[in-house]
Each structure stands twice: as C-alpha cells, then as structure tokens.
C-alpha cells in the first residue's frame, strides 16, 4: 500500500478508561477526535476497575467511531486504514477495541495496524508540531509509566530511564487518596497545591543525582509518615510540597537526559503532563538549557485516538499492515530500535 500525505487513518483507543476514536490524515493532520472518559464510573472505587472499564468500552466505542466519522465530514469509504492500540493496557479493555478495529478493516477491506500505546504517547507532540527535530527526548509520565525516551528518528527509540517502582501518576493517585482529595489524583493534587506552600515540607528527591531512573514509592511513604507525625499539617502544603518534589526530579532528569544525548528538542507526554507546575517548570528548564521545548495541549497528553491514528500511519508506512490474527498484548513494551 502506498502511504501518502493523503492517507486517512481511523484510530481506536480502549486501553484504559478512555474510549476514543479519531481520524488523522498523513500522520499529523487531525481531522476529528472523539473521547469519552469513564472517570466518573471509576471514581467511587479510587482507581480503574478493569471489568467496569471493559463493559463501558463495549457501550461507548460505536458512538465514538460514529462521532469521529461524522465530525470529520468524510464518507467511511474514504478511510484507508484502521489503527488500534494493542497494548500495553488492560487486556479486556484492549480486546474491545482490537476486535472492533479488525472487524472494520474486514468490512472496509483496508489494512489493520496494531499500535503500541506508549509509542503513540511519543507521537502526541507531532500532532501539533510536525517540524520537531530529532534527536528528541520525550518525558513520558502517566498513571502507568514514567520514562525518558530518546527518539532518534521515526520508529527508532532508546530508553534512557524509567521508574524502578511506582509511576509518577500512581504516586499522585495514592497521595490524593491518602489526603482525601479524591480521584483522579493528578488534577486533585494540582488543585489543592494551588493554595499551599511548595517549600513547607522538604520531601526527599529520590535518586536525584543518580542516573536517569526514577523512584516514587519512598516519596509516597514520606508523605504518609509526615502526615501521621503532624496530624494538623495543612493538606494544601502537603500537596504542594509533594508535587514540587515530583516535578523537581522529573524536570532535572529530563534536562540531564537531553544534555546527555545532545537533543534538539525535549517534549512532554502522558496524562501527568497536564500538571500545571510540571508544564511551567518544564518550559523554564528548556529555555535555560537551550532546547526546543514542546508541550502538547492537554487533550493530546491524556489518552486519545488521534495519537493512535498518527502512530498507525507511521507504522503502516514503515512496517505495513498488522496480521489479523494479532491479539492484545497487555504487557507490550516500547519497541527499542536504536
């Protein structure tokens, strides 16, 4: 198949608690993007419940696909390929999307492309700035992952560092739950921190001067110990000080990684990239370090199908279609091709 600037890809994303469909042309041009978040369904449980997520995806996927097609104002016959997240993620949730995507590729007689969700987060930055130059370092921070990746070219990645325990987003969720701030933890801590003093408590910056890996479980324990020892402490001060500790480490290591590989640019990705302090400090660090800093809009940081369609376009161009007997891979890793 000849993959061109005119090739229109339908993207489907159901790996966690967002059901999404989008149409992207030529790998960069977002024609439409529909996302339905299930956050309210999971809020009472304080985390994503896999069976509830899978049931909701089955209900919501058809309407999301219909909305993406209608909003694009194109005929379904115009769609050239169907791309879908095949992992990592919740297996039952992934299977809803994968089954629908393969079925659509059969009906429309177009290629199916299985997409790695983490790789798609790397591509989110390109949706708004296709001119980003390589080598590019991407700091990917979400509920499930914290990693620093060097993109040397399209499809060529090197893992520079990752968390050795909790993901940053997981730490936000746990601290928010402990402080009774609600779910999801990222926005909850972000809001509470607005009223607090980030220097009130000096929480540890784990592994700050030690390589490019991260560790957040000790920080979470320090927060719990501090609040137990000082029951009258202001939740806002704890939230602000905790957030400052996380952001300090993320930004310092991202900058160091970019310097190490001689990166032209530094980009943020993943759900935690919506954090306001992280966004602010990240841009300052890029300016200081002399890198082209890139912050995708919040809608492309969180899970969406436009990044899936965009990645699908690149993978279809480089690797061709994915066989129809491919299933979901809940533990799929980023394909490392230096």
């Amino acid at each position: 198949m000849n993959v061109t600037e005119q090739t229109l890809v339908l993207g489907i994303e159901t790996s966690c608690d967002e059901t999404a469909a989008a149409l992207v042309m030529g790998g960069y041009d977002v024609i439409s993007s529909a996302v339905s978040s299930q956050v309210d369904l999971h809020a009472q449980f304080g985390g994503v419940v896999p069976e509830i997520a899978s049931r909701a995806h089955l209900e919501l996927l058809n309407p999301m696909i219909a909305r993406a097609v209608v909003e694009a104002g194109v005929s379904e016959q115009r769609i050239d390929a169907v791309a879908c997240t095949i992992g990592p993620g919740l297996v039952g949730a992934l299977l809803v999307g994968v089954s629908a995507a393969k079925a659509l590729s059969l009906v429309w007689d177009v290629p199916f492309v299985g997409v790695n969700h983490m790789e798609a987060h790397l591509y989110a930055a390109f949706l708004e700035d296709p001119t980003l130059e390589f080598p590019l370092v991407v700091l990917l921070v979400s509920g499930g992952h914290t990693m620093l990746v060097e993109m040397r070219d399209h499809g060529h990645y090197r893992l520079l560092g990752q968390t050795i325990d909790d993901a940053a987003g997981e730490a936000f969720d746990k601290v928010a739950r402990f402080l009774g701030l609600g779910y999801p933890g990222g926005p909850a801590v972000d809001n509470e921190a607005l009223h607090g003093d980030p220097e009130a408590i000096n929480f540890p910056r784990a592994m700050m001067h030690d390589g490019l890996d991260f560790s957040f479980s000790g920080l979470k324990t320090s927060v719990i110990n501090h609040v137990r020892k000082h029951p009258d402490v202001s939740a806002a001060d704890v939230a602000a000080s905790f957030q400052a500790a996380v952001v300090d480490v993320l930004v310092a290591k991202a900058r160091r990684a970019a310097e190490l590989v001689g990166a032209r640019g530094l980009a943020l990705g993943g759900g935690v990239a919506a954090n306001s302090l992280l966004r602010e400090r990240f841009l300052t660090a890029c300016a200081d370090g002399g890198f082209h800093g890139f912050l995708p809009s919040r809608e492309w940081c969180t899970d969406n199908a436009a990044m899936i369609a965009a990645t699908g376009w690149h993978r279809l161009r480089s690797d061709g279609p994915t066989p129809l007997d491919t299933g979901a891979s809940p533990n799929l890793r980023l394909p490392l091709r230096p």
């Binding site: 089955l58 696909i65 299977l95 089954s99 629908a100 393969k102």
Partner: peptide, 12 residues
C-alpha cells in the same frame, strides 16, 4: 465481548 464488539462494528 470479543464477538459482540466485532459484531457491532460490522453491523454499524
């Protein structure tokens, strides 16, 4: 859900 999701996508 594998069958239902595929069936729904085909019918739609």
């Amino acid at each position: 859900r594998v069958g239902l999701s595929a069936g729904k996508a085909i019918a739609q």
